[in-house]
Design a protein around this nucleic acid. Sequence first.
RNA 1: GGAGAAAUGGCAGAGUGGUCUAUUGCGGCAGUCUUGAAAACUGUUGUGGGUUAUACCACCGGGGGUUCGAAUCCCUCUUUCUCCGCCA
Length: 424
Amino acid sequence: MLQLNTIREHKDEVLKGLAKKHFAKAEEIINKIIEADATRRQAQKDSDNLKSEANTISKQVGELMKAGKKEEAEVVKTKTAELKEKEKQLGELLAEKEKEIQDLLCLVPNLPNEKVPAGKTPEENETVYKHGEIPTLHAAAVPHWDLTTKYDLIDFELGVKITGAGFPVYKGKGAKLQRALINFFLDRATAKGYREIMPPLMVNEASGFGTGQLPDKEGQMYHATIDGFYLIPTAEVPITNIYRDVILKESELPVKNCGYTPCFRREAGSYGKDVRGLNRLHQFDKVEIVQIAHPEKSYEILEEMKEYVAGLLQDLELPYRILRLCGGDMSFASAMTYDMEVWSAAQQRWLEVSSVSNFEAFQSNRLKCRFKGADGKTQLAHTLNGSALALPRIVAALLENNQTPEGIKIPKVLVPYTGFDIIN
RNA sequence: GGAGAAAUGGCAGAGUGGUCUAUUGCGGCAGUCUUGAAAACUGUUGUGGGUUAUACCACCGGGGGUUCGAAUCCCUCUUUCUCCGCCA
């Protein structure tokens, strides 16, 4: 959520930023916000003045009663009737305008950083880095959904029986490989100074709002309606919400947390190759890294997080590229996003395995996550997060790229975690 | 699931209808003293709205109500604690 101050004082820059994000009704909504804000402030002032007057009268009544002048007190009391009526009306106007402003603010996406390219579609994303050789596979090479069946690693149909499409069952070495990857990612993150968190997998509405899933992206999450809880679509939600309504000390920044969780996504609308096998699931595993940063340091930290994730891909010996997303392809809440994609040799395409973003103060304004500076003033912190990493597409690429006639080779760094170096 | 008790500032903990503009202690910050530190003493110390700045307004778990006036009384929700039941 953008800050009212920013909109009020830097309207032109806000409109320019929103244009880069291809946000359609920017001018109309921003004007409505400014107007409602002006009305609200006037009503606030009027209401405060009435309350002040009423407070004075109440004190008078108190003093008169104490002095035993009951009749005079009764006379003074009657003065408040009109005040109360006016105050009630203003109170209603105030609440109405506050809600209007809040609802409108929720519609406005974050402003992109200057460096974000201006494009609209994924084709216009900027490739900032490429690493690794595109492997050439042997003649009998097949996509991962055939490999998982051949070696009995993942059973998609069994998942359909137990739950539904998109809920795979991992078996034997397939399950062990999941566990190995999770441990490898967590060990790396904690070695890099991230504190490991094991959060709840269901969150309440306030948490969903804090990180921006609610109210507008409600359909993305599974909803346990009886209790009003949502299954988390990413560990970002519970881990970032640790800092909802928190005022940190400046010396505590940056706060670095990581966590492994299963992630649940309802996703709709895709078909065919895009959703085949491990490409898109309703439940998948992911290790997430989250930082709360000083505003002056957040872009430095974004680069550091990007490099960290790139290092993981390098150690897994996967060819990858890093994209800086263009304005039109970025998420609602992000100010700058790097996507990491690995090459999937049998599918002959790039698969997104990580997304590292700086949200600047957009999330923290919703979360009310602040820090107190040396000058004693509180200000909003910046939040950042990234997948490090999402497992399914990593597994897809590992299986496909490393397949040989003898079996699937496991990258060296994982062998201590799997206990085997080949799947055959 | 049943019965009872409770929720107050960073923490502890007073306050049960009228200078509460929230007592006090601890902690934090600044100062005095000191070569420096500790101790002692003095001052200061929440969040949000609003104003050029003051004034001013709101906030005692959340929401609603009674009253001229609510931390205090009433309703409701949430959470915590104690006891009982069930349970991996």
